[in-house]
Design a protein around this nucleic acid. Sequence first.
RNA 1: GGAGAGGUGCCCGAGUGGUUAAAGGGGACGGACUGUAAAUCCGUUGGCUAUGCCUACGCUGGUUCGAAACCAGCCCUCUCCA
Length: 418
Amino acid sequence: MTKLKSDFLNILTERGFIHQCSDIEALDGQAAAGKLVAYVGYDCTAPSLHVGSLISIMMLAWLQKTGGKPIVLMGGGTTRVGDPSGKDETRQLRTVEEIDANKDGMKQVFSRFLQFGSGKTDAIMVDNAEWLASLYYIDFLRDVGRHFSVNRMLTMDSAKMRLEREQELSFIEFNYMLLQAYDFVELARRHSCNLQMGGSDQWGNIVTGIDLGRRMGVKEQLLALTCPLLTTASGAKMGKTASGAVWLNEAQLSGYDYWQYWRNTEDADVARFLKLFTMLPMGEVAKLAALQGADINEAKKVLATEATALIHGRENADAAAETAKKTFEQGALAADLPTIEIDRTELDAGLGVLAAFVKAGLVATNSEARRQIQGGGLKVNDAGVTSDKAALSMKDATASGVIKLSLGKKKHVLLKPV
RNA sequence: GGAGAGGUGCCCGAGUGGUUAAAGGGGACGGACUGUAAAUCCGUUGGCUAUGCCUACGCUGGUUCGAAACCAGCCCUCUCCA
């Protein structure tokens, strides 16, 4: 490969974002000339984005930093159909109301990463429901459908997988590919968009869009760029924690928990994640990546704080780091751990430990609390709970007026009498 | 429409009249070891006012002292044929 001349591709390459590209030289040229307008499409299947989408958001952010124009495409229309890629079962169809609500939830994250507006490199957000919802079937078949070969569609991974496993692929899902391809053409026409980015599982859909553009007379060359699908070094899918997915919205996952997610990164992933999920200069990354053994924890803290700062703001990130430091390193009681208020009269009456832990949300049921006690997993004010008959009262409140409940070593909640 | 196979706990999957709150695995949680890591090892993995009670093997009835298991009807999935 010849030397890349654009900042955009140099950065993406050295930080490990690139999996596949349809025409790297053409892309490099467009980027260097400041003519890149790129989009990433997001399904509206959940009320918030999660870390799985983060890598493509970072690509959009770098694009803007290096002089390109990012387009965030909300899949308000395509989500009504459902993408079969990478799923071996038909997804449940979502209602239109649900999709709209999800869309609103997802929007807030993007403003953290991208500058929106009407300037040349300002990001814009569009919803493909705009053009998909009002399509006429016959017209669509004539204008778009005739460019698609069913023979070839059947050989694409998303369809092939279903066929090989003899699992149903409904006609509605089979159409997803056409719609996504058409999105690309529509964006090219409306916004001079010339690049689509996405996870490597989107490759098939993206190049189909390029092909369609050519057949439908889009003058400009359309390009594809995909990033690797992320797993942790030990092979697990990214973005799952104890309490579910790692959401990007504060409402779904607090800044503190988000910080903790990154703090618990496996050693082997630290360097890779620093490059992908922070904007630290490469020199800095190299320095941190060189740390060995227990010292690598310092790198994890930087990773956690930098990654958290990107979406929750620097202040929240520092606060999370501080809370963690107090809780884990000094064993002190940090005031801004998650706090649950509790009625003082309830405490005076003697609140059973089981009920207290359930109330705090650390366990789901009394039985689970009992089991955790048996396994030595519950602590009140850092002292192990030995009996399920124990009760809490005002006497258990510490100097700062709260009772600290812990599940295992990492999860803590403060009970605050009011 | 016809013929066959199947629907079991978070998931996969055994069980084909009683000792079954249901083997085994995965996942998850807790413990030990560590560095808030990974790997490894150990434990737990339906609920409750708890030596008992309630709910649970697609749904509804039935047979039986006793059913996830046997019978009937229904619903759903898959395969083959039309």
